[in-house]
Design a protein around this nucleic acid. Structure first.
Lengths: 129, 129
DNA sequence: CTTGAGCTTCCAGTAACTGGAAGGCCTATA
DNA sequence: TATAGGCCTTCCAGTTACTGGAAGCTCAAG
């Protein structure tokens, strides 16, 4: 299979697929013309990567998850630990954004947003006191 | 004022302050020895930038906000628009992360996390069906 | 005078791609 | 057969907002 077909099948852009090869996540065969020739296993890995990335796992995490996936005898505990770590990080991000959202929403609500120069948003940015 | 004092006063690392000068956000004077010499206005701008960045505004947004801040006759509507746009983006991020969190939490809950190789997290990543 | 801290510039690296250029390959149509 | 286009290849550069480190100058204290 050529890269274009794989891109269509997995939803990953060709550029991303080449990048994944660059960093050693996949190793597709090459045809006589130099084109990449993707096997079913390659497709599976790419789909796996696409879903992992969509869940927000870093490439480093994906690399580990992929290795664990390919190791049929691995313990699920390892996978769970990575996923839980990631979950905790998502929680931290949500908490941070939520707090930030509160502050910003408060400022926006206080700003008249008309033609007058008086602006509590800028006032707050200029002086937090 | 030297960069170190400004860094202590604003909480921004010296590297970041130099970077802000590089990209034209500030223009501190230079002393005879080549050292940057920050004025009170420079300090104010840096503090403004620090708070804007802490609220998650991009550098591009900060540049505009700073210009608006320095333009005493500007209309608050412009500022409010930027802040509202940013707020909307934060909401999108929170929504995305929350959805992702739900999926991941579900998978984590289903995984035994013991020494057995059976792992619903990997199974789900391998095949979304 | 030396020592150490602080300042300078410049180069490179981070995460995960993305865009674009230059050029080879493949297929279909005139 | 020529050519047009679409797909493929590689390589280089840019993105965001810094951050780390090296080489070297300056300043203040002892």
């Amino acid at each position: 299979m050529n890269i274009g077909e794989v891109a269509d099948a997995t939803g990953l852009p060709p550029k991303t697929i080449r990048y994944y090869e660059d960093i050693g996540l996949i190793r597709p065969r090459r045809g006589a013309n130099g084109y990449r020739d993707f096997s079913g296993a390659d497709m599976h890995k790419l789909a796996f990567l696409g879903r992992s990335r969509a869940l927000g796992f870093s490439i480093a995490d994906c690399r580990i998850l992929l290795a664990l996936y390919e190791d049929k005898g691995r313990a699920s505990a390892e996978v769970k630990e990575i996923a839980q770590g990631h979950l905790a990080e998502i929680d931290r991000k949500i908490a941070g954004l939520t707090e930030l959202r509160g502050t910003l929403a408060h400022l926006v609500a206080e700003c008249a947003g008309d033609s007058r120069p008086d602006c509590p948003i800028l006032a707050s940015l200029a002086d937090a006191s």
